[in-house]
């Protein structure tokens, strides 16, 4: 569960990115976070992943209180999250399989656990035939699937994706969203940042709209377009 209470974020240069955000995402939910460029979407994601600290307000992530979390606790908090980016962030010199085992080893998994878990996750994202390929030998959509597999491999309770389809064509984007929906149905909470209106409107999901650092609408179905609340 993620909970933001009256959160403000002012960057060092004085930019006020968030101006009093209240947001609650319960376990098992699928949430789209939408809004124009510069509205503060990535800022919310970075606060949740403890990449940056908030200026004011309260923030809870999966049982960790990020207002007073110790630096030693941060890695353990992050293990409850699977993070996906627009630019995939795969290690070019490692194969698909090695990228996943690298992520598992990073949190201390044994080689037995690695051998058991990776085939399952690769099958889930539909890449079980391509485990020995290098990222450069995959299409963009396939690379993003690897990134999703990597986010899933440590069995997080929540997947956070910041514009996961930003680099993909509409068809690949749809496939990625359908995959995320499937992962959500298997029990993982999913938070997706996007500003692709058509894509959002193809799903009947909760949509949180943010503009200029404030949440302006929060409801199920359809991208907020200025008329509908």
């Amino acid at each position: 569960m993620v909970r933001l209470i009256d959160v403000y974020k002012e960057y060092d240069n004085g930019t006020k990115a968030l101006k009093g955000v209240d947001l609650r995402i319960d376990d098992g939910e699928f949430v789209f976070l939408v809004g124009p460029s510069g509205s503060g979407k990535s800022t919310i994601i970075k606060l949740i992943t403890a990449e940056i600290a908030l200026t004011e307000g309260r923030l809870m992530v999966n049982g960790y209180n990020l207002n007073n979390i110790s630096p030693r606790q941060v890695p353990y908090m992050r293990r409850t999250l699977g993070i996906i980016f627009q630019d995939f962030r795969l290690i070019e010199k490692k194969t698909v399989y090695e990228n996943l085992s690298f992520a598992m080893r990073a949190v201390g998994a044994s080689s037995r656990e690695v051998k058991r878990r990776i085939p399952y996750v690769l099958k889930l994202v539909g890449l079980d035939q391509k485990e020995d390929r290098y990222p450069a030998q995959l299409s963009g959509g396939e690379q993003q699937r690897v990134a999703i597999a990597r986010a899933l491999v440590n069995n997080p309770s929540m997947i956070i994706a910041d514009e996961p389809t930003g680099n993909l064509d509409p068809q690949r984007s749809l496939e990625i969203m359908i995959l995320l929906e499937k992962i959500n149905e298997l029990g993982t909470t999913v938070l997706v940042v996007t500003h692709e209106k058509n894509l959002v409107n193809r799903f009947d999901k909760r949509v949180v709209a943010i503009e200029n650092g404030r949440i302006i609408s929060d409801g199920t179905g359809g991208y907020y377009n200025g008329e509908k609340i």
């Binding site: 992943t49 030693r72 890695p75 353990y76 908090m77 992050r78 293990r79 999250l81 993070i83 962030r89 290690i91 690298f102 992520a103 990073a106 949190v107 201390g108 990597r150 440590n154």
Partner: peptide
Amino acid sequence: RDEIAIMKMCGATDGFI
């Protein structure tokens, strides 16, 4: 630095890195 960033993102501790 990319590898380190990915490890941190996955929740690796500083000691482990």
